[in-house]
Design a binder for these strands. Sequence first.
DNA 1: AGCATTTCTTAACTTAAGTGAACGAGTGGA
DNA 2: TCCACTCGTTCACTTAAGTTAAGAAATGCT
Lengths: 192, 192
Amino acid sequence: MQNILLGFLSKYITLTPEEKDAIFSLDIFHLFKKGTTLLKEGQKTKESYFVLKGCIRTYYVIDGEEKTTAFYAELEGVTPPCVLTQTPSDYYISCTEDSIVLISDAEMGAVVNAKFPRFETLCRIFSEELLAKQQIDFDAFKTSSPEQRYLNLIQKRPDLIQRVPQHQLASYLGIKPQSLSRLRARIIERKS
Amino acid sequence: MQNILLGFLSKYITLTPEEKDAIFSLDIFHLFKKGTTLLKEGQKTKESYFVLKGCIRTYYVIDGEEKTTAFYAELEGVTPPCVLTQTPSDYYISCTEDSIVLISDAEMGAVVNAKFPRFETLCRIFSEELLAKQQIDFDAFKTSSPEQRYLNLIQKRPDLIQRVPQHQLASYLGIKPQSLSRLRARIIERKS
DNA sequence: AGCATTTCTTAACTTAAGTGAACGAGTGGA
DNA sequence: TCCACTCGTTCACTTAAGTTAAGAAATGCT
């Protein structure tokens, strides 16, 4: 498992043995099997999750049904709202694939901020950009039909359609799996 | 008009004549009539809008139809995504009521940041909180039906239902005005 | 390989939103 | 004051999503 992490990291940076030791003693990188739950509803956490490899999803359980609201794949990350509100989480986070996830902590952030003030600027810019992106996504969702949302997803995130189960995709699009099947059949029908 | 601004401000802080002059020379506060457009589609801007009194809305025009995606009332604000992406705006911003709006500029932010480093921390926290709120709202929208969204709106933003025209509310809920009428009739029917 | 489980699709039926049109109430302007 | 216009509601009809059920296909486990 450590080899997988090191192999992955070596694609990006060259590490001295000391640095490798330092990284593992930091206990920041984690390898999870597909299906592993990182956060459960009702649980309190101060952790943020950043995906290096694989894919994780956030979902609510409403009336016994899973409602997937977001996917985070390579180089994407989440800080659950409950981290900021200091309340139990409203949703679950779990891995849709075997994944390497960087897990960081509010306290860790504070330590880094104290050492490197420029890190704060980075975080502000990062979070402002995320906010803008999220706003655009939200607007796109509101102003389009399920079918348009699906067609849009094909354009913007073709990988998701391949790697994620249909029923999770469906709830991500705000519809039932049966409706997604039908909708896809409709699109293919129209093409031919 | 300056009296209205001063009257409003005096509820919160006491100002010396010099400060009053300083405020107006800053040219930060603006009074707009209902219906005034602050930002047009295709326009470039570096401005953020913060509502002190009244209410503004953001909307797209898609196939000649207005699609309202957000309302900002007292003590709420927006930075349009186009400010960050440096591209022409995709949407309009206009006043749904006579409003007092604080308009600030990316450059102004930089100046303030340089003078007061703690201001950066404030901005980061503010934008992280906004991000969390937005995420919660987005999730709530995705996981609920138009009717649930309307019922939710009654709980969370009862003021909007009173002060905003139905057809804008409808598009904010992601439906047509006729559907909103029907939906409301359905709810009343069920109560009795 | 064989069995159980999950996942995806199809179908028939129900429910709710979209569409186009008409009507009355309210609003603003000449 | 009167006219035109906007706004909200209602109705009839269309379209698409929800629901329930069944079966085929893929997956996982032993």
